[in-house]
Nucleic acid binder design. Structure first.
Lengths: 226, 226
DNA sequence: TCGTGTGAACGATTTCACAGCC
DNA sequence: GGCTGTGAAATCGTTCACACGA
């Protein structure tokens, strides 16, 4: 009585638990496969994919085996088939409307970024509260007031690019509007109902992780190297 | 027993292996501590910190114990002392010059972001190759040509906000200029010498992870909910 | 022969549970 | 009594090593 498998029909192999670590690697594999396809490749081995992704080959095979994707022993994987499988697994074969809240420097950069207009994603709405921003046009869209969030069908993904101080209020508004998941760039731990997925991206954390290692290195490595 | 902490003299805290997972949480704790200090708190328990960070309390205690930080049994941690310890651990008590390469929408957003001008970080140089951008002023700095990267003392952290196609060339230039670590926003696996730290941030990956779960949910949750 | 798929070993991280101290 | 610090257990993820099929 653990995970409810929608077992049933054979077209969809849904075997076991998928580690989040695997999910994060799928887009990487997908990107590399795409590049290889562009270069004319038709088959690809776990070894080659692993080398390009700089990961272990067994990991690549295990990742794919979780989805029942299978290659051919002695040959490798059919690159196009594998890419299609990953697309389907990640939902890249569907359309995902995105609403961005907070049209400052970051919000603008996100609205114009390739990553937000590919893999099935498209920017469906831009929101802010500042009168100086509401009404302006960004990425071909008119920025609306946050209060009008409920006027359009809810986005699949709400992106919070607002200041930390208003992040929770924005999250509440997104949830109220029926948004199913949130990508949060504000340095704030959000409270949302359990059914709403949240992923945090904190750019400052990444810098701090680097400075931790730089600090350490000075202590650990420098003396060891003379 | 191995409670040798460095009251005053900073170089004796070399306790055990620090999991990367812990390092990533430290900035979060630090932020929460800072907020609590602002609100007038003087002591804080692992329980309270855990609740605010939405993590397990034992994890909080174990994380801190790795650095020999210690609280007072029955009381909790001295908030100011703990915050200072974390600052020192993360290197936030030092100065970290950052060079940003690629002054498009994202590079501009990063240059102006709070996270790049706090915790000891400061934007020391902005670089690009496009004639339309080189020479312009962003965040109070003049954007220079990438070729002049070596003219200034090397940054501690190089940020790649350039297109994927030029990411490796930018990485090579950063390494040649003596940069010690790289924060890479380009969707490209970089090759650098082992001594250079790289951290990848791919905004598109975050969206794809969300769409994976949304796709799953539709299958798993929707039928269960009717 | 080659490369996938996978059980089993290993390693890393989290959580439990409680002894020890204030 | 309350809360930290930490071994030990549980869980999660990675890597090894090899059987198996093309």
């Amino acid at each position: 009585m653990n995970a409810r498998h929608a077992t049933g029909n054979g077209r969809d192999v849904r075997p076991r638990r998928v580690p989040e670590a695997t999910i994060v690697r799928l887009p990487l594999y997908q990107r590399i496969l795409w590049e290889m396809l562009q270069a004319g490749a038709t088959t690809v081995s776990s070894e080659e994919l692993a080398a390009r992704a700089k990961v272990n080959a067994a990991k690549v095979r295990k990742d794919f085996s979780l989805f029942g994707s299978f290659g051919t022993r002695g040959t490798g994987y059919d690159a196009a088939f594998l890419a299609a499988q990953i697309d389907r697994t990640l939902g890249s074969d569907r359309e995902w409307p995105i609403a961005i809240v907070g049209i400052g420097n970051l919000g603008r950069a996100l609205a114009n970024s390739d990553g937000f207009s590919s893999h099935g994603f498209y920017v469906a709405g831009l929101y802010d509260v500042a009168p100086s921003v509401v009404g302006s046009r960004v990425h071909g869209l008119t920025v609306r007031h946050l209060d009008s969030l409920g006027d359009a069908p809810p986005a699949a993904i709400g992106v919070i690019a607002a200041p930390a101080t208003s992040a929770q209020a924005v999250a509440d508004a997104l949830v109220a509007a029926g948004v199913l998941s949130i990508l949060n760039f504000a340095p704030r731990v959000l409270s949302v109902p359990p059914s709403v997925l949240v992923r945090d991206v904190d750019l400052s954390v990444e810098l701090q992780v680097l400075s931790f290692f730089l600090t350490r290195r000075e202590i650990d490595v420098a003396p060891a190297r003379g």
